[in-house]
């Protein structure tokens, strides 16, 4: 298991609120291998976003370490590129300038920057929109730009925080396929968070189902469905069986969390 790119080593995260402490994540351990697409699913409030923010370095665990290539993550980590649900694009920069933002502040020369951005823009299918501002783009195109911006910064792992949640169903499907294509092309490692079981099944090599508050690993599924991203996969028996299993597990957690909320 030495090839683990990310290792969660018995992570606990507590938040102090006025009403008292809340344990968002408890004794969470998990490994993500290089080249793997791992998805965490769970009811809302299960601490999956907290986990992602800890990997990115926005939050630090209350106890335990998250290791990136064997080194604990202690500050905001550019090697863990984050894709936000609301795109988080700089509205005053064109698509090209958004994509070049990372290379620019990391001191990459203008010429190299331009070549690389062109390459990635073409990869995500935004050629011809280099000079458009984010405000002029559709939601799907904005998320492509965000993906492109992170890729251009050459991260070791892609962290995706429900990136397609704000998109309409059709755009979402297309974006899922696109993400798969791009990730397969580049061999990126991906840690993906979603509450859509379909999305998880389509994208992942591995699905982690989390329990709610405190968030821990409830079950890990290895998925061996064909990764074409084609819609047809969703009609196979195997797919439906997995979906039913995972849904049963998640449903249980959702009910627990709702009881907690209502009590």
């Amino acid at each position: 298991m030495s090839e683990a790119l990310i290792k969660f080593d018995n992570i606990t995260k507590r938040f102090s609120l006025r009403k008292g402490d809340i344990v968002a994540v408890k004794d969470f351990s998990l490994e993500i291998k290089k080249g793997e697409i791992l998805t965490i699913v769970g009811a809302s409030g299960c601490g999956k976003t907290t986990l992602l923010n800890m990997v990115a370095g926005f939050l630090t665990p209350s106890s335990g370490n998250i290791l990136l290539d064997g080194q604990p993550i202690t500050k905001v980590e550019p090697r863990c590129g984050m894709i936000f649900q609301n795109y988080a694009l700089f509205p005053w920069l064109s698509v090209r300038k958004n994509v070049e933002f990372g290379p620019k502040i990391n001191g990459v020369s203008k010429k190299v920057r331009r070549e690389e951005s062109a390459k990635y823009i073409e990869m995500v299918g935004l050629k011809g929109f280099e000079d458009a501002y984010p405000g002029e783009l559709s939601g799907g195109m904005r998320q492509r730009t965000a993906l492109c911006r992170v890729l251009a910064n050459k991260p070791d792992i892609l962290l995706c925080d429900e990136p397609f949640a704000a998109l309409d169903a059709m755009t979402r499907q297309i974006m899922q396929q696109e993400l798969l294509r791009i990730v397969n092309e580049s061999g990126q490692t991906v840690l993906f968070i979603t509450h859509s079981i379909d999305e998880a099944l389509i994208l992942s090599d591995k699905i982690v189902v989390m329990s709610v508050r405190p968030g821990t690993v409830k079950h890990i599924y290895d998925i061996e469905l064909p990764h074409s991203g084609k819609v047809e996969v969703q009609l196979t028996d195997e797919y439906l069986k997995l979906k039913r299993q995972i849904w049963a597990m998640v449903e249980e957690e959702v009910k627990i969390s709702m009881n907690i909320v209502s009590s």
Binding site: G81, N86, A88, F90, F101, G102, I105, N106, R149, V150
Partner: peptide
Amino acid sequence: VDPILRRAAMNLGASPLQILRYVILPG
């Protein structure tokens, strides 16, 4: 200025000064 933009810039490797110059000011 949307705090998520600061986070995005930090995530791309920007220092506090770079965030001020490239994110806060234009934002």
